[in-house]
Amino acid sequence: MSEAVHNPELSVEALKAGDRAEFARFVDAYSGPIYRLALRILGDAQDAEDVLQETFIKAYRHLGEFEGRSSFSTWLYRIASNEAFMLLRRRHPEMVSVEEGTQTPDGEQEPLQIVDWCCLPEEEFLTAESRAYLDKAIDQLAPALKAVFLLRDIEGFSVRETAEALSLSEAAVKTRLLRARLQLREQLSIYYDERLRERGTGTREIHANGREGGIAREPEKYEKEVGPS
């Protein structure tokens, strides 16, 4: 799943020895997740490109300092996420506090949308509109939550890899991941609830309240009788 995290073919020794071909392969192996993370956090293609370039320039300069305490890839992602958040602070100083997370320290946001939309037919989840909505929902997350969610759930990092890549404790990763997922669940519930209503099957009511849902009457039936006089 996360081949970028576990790329066994790259040789750290060759990189340290200045093997340029190996460095080129290294760049290709890790560019994707780094670019996507920066793009999501900064929301700007030019800024994402700057982060991408700065990350590899710094990595190249500091190769000698890599001591193998963490994996090489998480070391690289750490440089990248530092760069991205540094640039974010410069671009949007007002977001600095947001970086720490959005909720009160000891309470999670109570779930508000209680609609069972899992029963929707599979095709409903595969539409372009549905995918675009999922995509857009990520952008509503606070940057600190977004970074954790992207690495863990989209790029497929483990909790530990995510923690190392973002210089966070595993506990912090788990807390942020839960918040991100709960917030996305709220958003998806709003969207798929509408899909359920569109289908007008009443499925939602049966699931949520244990009773048959009322199907909307068709007003045109009543209007039909009124002809021009």
Binding site: F125, L134, D153, I154, R181, R185, S189, A208
Partner: peptide, 18 residues
């Protein structure tokens, strides 16, 4: 319902290609 939809949410994102 919260758990079912939370699980589905994670699944949908996992299936989304990066």
């Amino acid at each position: 319902i919260v758990i079912d939809t939370l699980r589905k949410t994670v699944e949908l994102y996992r299936d989304m290609a990066p």
